[in-house]
Design a protein around this nucleic acid. Sequence first.
DNA 1: ACTGCCGACATTTTT
DNA 2: TGTCGGCAGT
Length: 679
Amino acid sequence: MKKFTLKKPSYEPRDPSSYTINYEKLLNEAQMKAVFHQKGPALVIAGAGTGKTRTLTYRVSRLIEDGVPPEQILLLTFTRRAAAQMLERATSLLDERCQKVKGGTFHHYCSQILYRFGNKIGLSDSFTIIDPGDAEDVIQLIRQPWQSEYKNERFPSKKALFHIISTHLNKQVPVVDVLEDEFKRFQKFHDHIIEIEQQYQDYKHANGLLDFDDLLIQTKFLLEDQEDMRAYIAGRNRHVLVDEYQDTNRLQADLIALLSSKFNNVMAVGDDAQSIYSFRGADLNNMFEFPERFSDTSIIRLEENYRSTQQILDLANTLIARASRKFDKTLRSPKTDGDLPGLIKTQDEREQSQFVTQMILHMREQQIELSDMAVLFRNGRDSYDLEVELNRSNIPFVKFGGQKITEAAHIKDVLAHLRVLYNPEDEIAWNRILMLIDGIGPKSAGELINWIKSGGQNRVERLQTASDKYLNKLKSLLSLFGKMKPVMDQPGELVTFVNTYYIPICKKKFDDAQKRTEDLENFEKIAAKYTSVKELLEDLVLDPLDGTAIETEKSEKDESPLILSTIHSAKGLEWHTVFMIQCLDGVIPSGYSVDDNEQLDEELRLLYVACTRAKEQLFLTLPLTQSGGFGDFFTNPSRFIKDIPKDTLEPWMLNYEEEDENANQLEDGNQNLRIDEGS
DNA sequence: ACTGCCGACATTTTT
DNA sequence: TGTCGGCAGT
């Protein structure tokens, strides 16, 4: 007869040698502490380059080795890229089980919950997630009456209104406070703003739309409102791990508490010196308040930096010491024999681009891979000039941050056609596609939408019964829908049909139709990889492809490209060599933040983040003149790098040298620069 | 009603 | 830089 024994999953410490992975050898003491932390809340305070990601990765695999079912681990990150990367690394450490860990952004995770359980709080089960652009379109419609009423004064723009509403929700503070803090000039419109917000909420509800904030708010509401749902969902999160905790906002902190309310095993990892998202409501007080919110928090500090040379850290330490709010952080590295970070001032932006390009070519000759170098900047557009130069020199690059291809008008137009089929209530998408048709403007589109919505269930059929004056114009759209119907679950086919219909419209509408047409063709291939429209739509909204992603699709075999990135998008990444360009006052710190100490601090942290991305070499560059409307004017170096001692940040001199051999390659003042270190 | 043109403008950073 | 709003013409 069989003898049954009950085997409890063991969460108690066990002999380190019984693990597949030799954690003790691979991790330092503090990291070990975090990886082997057993029960209850923990806050890991980790300076730049101290192995935050590494620690989380190993913790995931350690938990799985200890028998925690992977699907009961929730790993929340800021970007999907970060989550995917971590799980990939964990998989190669341990095994395939790691892929089953629930990982992703807050927004993504919440969307999953709402797709499954949203009906419990009255959400449609085919809601559409709208991006800020769509949200602004809605607000624009609502704002119209006030706009005409206040013709002569400046009524807040759709952008401002959206920002106010979103901030108020993310920070969980009343609109009055948002106006007081950021928009004093709109205070007198307070009551109107409240009303617009109400109408905006109603509109979304009536149309089955959720914006980014709704994903978090509705999930929070679901968990607070329905105790059984909270118990169920929290019961499936035996361990909750949160990356970049310093950049969570109030709403996210509340969510984390709810999601981990059953087991109370929550580990938050972050660095207060790297908080760079307050514009989105991030509140670094979340970090300081963590121990109050979760009682019996273990605090673990990771302090040893493995990434950068001491020379780079010296500069980073000097910078962060200039913050008005003090950080108790001094990064130390065992790598003491590095080069000093360099400060390079060029004549103008052109020359800055040429310098960076030539340095990159030079480093490539030294066997540094392009993909191990990055150029960072404050604003997406700060790299335009450089991009021209890189193209000219045939240096392949990808750009993170800046304009997203899925936010481009032509892609949104195509997607809108899929959206109406998936969610026929979506007026914003209807409006978009109707307005594309010749002879239909705002007025007709509005009437048509009213017509569609006044009928029975099937919106598309209803459209076929529109009055004759419209039917003619709608003919080709209706025949398009006819073709789409049978292939509803084949995104690739759908996009192909829409493209055939849309490309002629595109050519009429845009001057640069050529490029856009190419985008659309590539987009077809991307769509074909999806198996459902729902997934496609959701992915493209929550994880928009970078502008270059569509192009890089074809060139996988080529040399892995150089990285251009905004500092925000560079978070958590590292490279052998980093160029930080446009270190100008008004750029970093941004001109918008110069009269507010807190914002100024955040800009400083931004520069700190940029510098700490570099492992071996760091160059800060700036042009001494900038061309603006009336010709050139002189610039000011960033206040953050003023008066930094020469033995911390070394100024370089540039020598000019005409190159005779390849005179044919020289174009308009494209002199070659020879780089000499100054004294 | 819709389209196209012109001048003014404000202009981060991201899910 | 491209986007927005107003205006005149079809």
